[in-house]
């Protein structure tokens, strides 16, 4: 299977490339664009990123494996992230995390068989004053309790 960037994404990469004096610096933006198109970063995707930017594949690999927001395996359609760090924990985040685990039948970094949900226990998301919180894909949901979380999960189709 061969991965190619769409024309639109190629121009987005070109725009990102212009922000920096070196091509290597655009790698983080490019990986984001690739992840958006492909869902996750596979071996082929890394090769294509290296090709497009004219850098070594090992540079792409080293960045992909360092940062937690890049996924090397397919994630669910809805990537549910539950923060359990101190402020959230004080406000009952583990209760929520356990509830979500049970409801989805998933553990940390697992994907449901129908690829609809994946679950991640994340570190502080910067919503300490609005704890507890979960994030679904890119959206934050704050000031939650177990019932509200279940409502959110039920509304995801």
């Amino acid at each position: 299977m061969c991965f190619k960037f769409t024309e639109e994404n190629l121009s987005r990469i070109e725009a990102a490339r212009k922000k920096y004096p070196t091509a290597l610096a655009a790698v983080m933006d490019t990986i984001y664009i690739a992840q958006e198109q492909n869902g996750y970063i596979s071996n082929e995707v890394m090769e294509e990123i290296a090709n497009v930017l004219g850098i070594d594949k090992v540079n792409v690999l080293s960045v992909v494996t360092f940062y937690t927001m890049y996924h090397t395996k397919p994630m669910g359609k809805y990537h549910v992230q539950v923060c359990t760090n101190v402020s959230c924990m004080l406000c009952g985040a583990y209760e929520i995390f356990d509830g979500v685990k049970e409801k989805l039948g998933l553990d940390h970094m697992q994907v449901s068989p129908d690829s609809k949900f994946s679950l991640e226990e994340v570190e502080c998301m910067g919503a300490c004053g609005y704890a507890p919180m979960i994030a679904v894909n890119e959206d934050y949901f704050e000031n939650l309790n177990k019932e509200k979380v279940f409502e959110i999960l039920d509304s995801l189709k």
Partner: peptide, 18 residues
């Protein structure tokens, strides 16, 4: 892309450099 350490100034620069 989700790394606490990148708030440290020199690691932030490495991160910008790709």
């Amino acid at each position: 892309a989700g790394a606490y350490i990148c708030g440290e100034e020199s690691s932030l620069m490495n991160s910008i450099e790709g």
